[in-house]
Design a binder for these strands. Structure first.
Lengths: 253, 253
DNA sequence: CAGAAAATATAACATGCGTTGGAGTATTGA
DNA sequence: TCAATACTCCAACGCATGTTATATTTTCTG
């Protein structure tokens, strides 16, 4: 039930059963947060790292003109703000998009984990680098893909990310976003998001109704937007896994 | 001369004189690389981390349609690919934009540094997080700023980053990019980059000639594009610096 | 269950930016 | 020094996307 984090970090490398136990223990004290509520706000120096157990969370910035832009999407199993330990001030905000279950993990716990659990430390480091890779892909999409491809690309990415934590079926998943939310992710206006959705629908690439997205032919959708899943790093090479002698520590003196 | 790295990492927190000495020793064996040459290529599993001593280096991806998109710019003092130790495969390439002096630092050296020099480890961690913050700002700019503001924002960012390593004067710096390079950074066509440059020139916001950018009135340019330098994290709060008991280790077992 | 509020859907029009093509102007190299 | 090559600049036209406005449907709330 609460094992999405474990499921996700397992992709990074072999966690032991003891690691699993530690992670499970961390995730016990969860709380419910309603939709559209800030978890941390720009300018803060927060004390907690948030783990998403259910629902969707986003990272966003507000431009001078007032527009919100979403720079990242966190799904169950994702940690929201691992970097608060280093940077002095948040340069962006984090908010729920839907009702969520989250765990607020004190920085000290993260510190303990990374001190005493080298494989967990490694997995966390891996997770932040994957986040950065996703960020790069979004950047490239904004610059180089037109609206329909860009949207299709997002849907493909979410399909894989949701499948990785066991929250998507073969051909679809829950997509409880508003068209305004999508607009803020894709750098489009809500009007054009709607147009683009109609376009993808008319080509039978997607079926989106009742907050559920269905992808009749995933291969076709991927071909349509030139989706290459490498950047998600969901398939670590066993070769590296075995020969990997690096461990990571984020420790406090 | 070669102290740009030290200068940059010093922003993160107090390095000791011994740390400086270590960093200096790392930077001795440099090499010249001509313009437009790959340092690491997508798909590689590189053995070295590159430090830029002079010139400009970029991180880029090629889209299916063949367009290059630049996702990050590295200036002297920047490390190019600190994450190769963790991720199994490069999902993008790194290339020089201009003739450069670079140092190829073996992963083992990075490992040693981060094992034995906690303050350096902390500073490196800090640097990668700042890179991520810059990436976010570029993303937001692509989505929410029109061409003139987006370009002006890039010029403001570079002004601060170059000043931080002592490579810009009060009112300008060397900008040896082609309009094609700028187009690939800004997500525009070269034609529109030219139009936009004319526009900024006609408003007396910039003077760009002979590969040198001059900014007659930096405050005006910043106001024009709504530039807020927080995301560069160039001014760590002393409060945090002093009370910061966290050190970081990226170590190998 | 009814009324309000929010989200979706479309239409008409405006515009920023892409596209194509070509003329000038530096830079480079033999 | 001259030719070759790259880069800069400019114009005309088209299209993707923004803007504004309004109707319709769904979801929320008492």
């Amino acid at each position: 039930m609460f094992d999405t984090l474990i499921r996700k970090l397992s992709i990074a490398g072999g966690l032991t059963e003891g690691d699993h136990e530690m992670l499970r223990r961390v995730s016990v004290r969860s709380r419910q947060v309603p939709a559209r509520q800030d978890l941390t706000t720009e300018g803060d120096r927060p004390e907690n790292v948030h783990l998403v157990l259910s629902g969707f969370v986003c990272r966003y910035k507000i431009l001078p003109r007032g527009q919100r832009h979403i720079t990242a999407l966190m799904v169950p199993g994702d940690l929201c703000d691992l970097h608060v330990a280093i940077l002095d001030e948040m340069d962006h905000s984090i908010a729920t998009l839907t009702p969520c279950t989250v765990v607020a993990i004190p920085r000290s716990t993260i510190r303990d984990l990374t001190e005493n659990r080298p494989r967990i430390a490694h997995a966390l480091w891996w997770a932040t680098l994957v986040d950065e890779a996703v960020l790069r892909e979004w950047l490239v999409g904004l610059a180089g893909r037109e609206a329909p491809e860009r949207m299709a690309h997002l849907f493909c990415e979410l399909l894989l990310r949701m499948q990785a934590v066991g929250l998507a079926e073969e051909d679809g998943y829950a997509l409880p976003f508003t068209q305004i939310d999508l607009a803020d992710m894709l750098g489009l206006t809500p009007v054009h998001v709607n147009r683009t959705l109609q376009h993808l629908r008319s080509e039978d690439l997607i079926v989106l109704k009742k907050r559920r997205l269905e992808i009749p032919d995933a291969a076709r959708l991927k071909a349509f937007c030139g989706f290459d899943p490498t950047y998600l790093h969901h398939t670590p090479r066993t070769k590296n896994l075995n020969s990997n002698q690096h461990k990571l520590q984020i420790s406090a003196s």
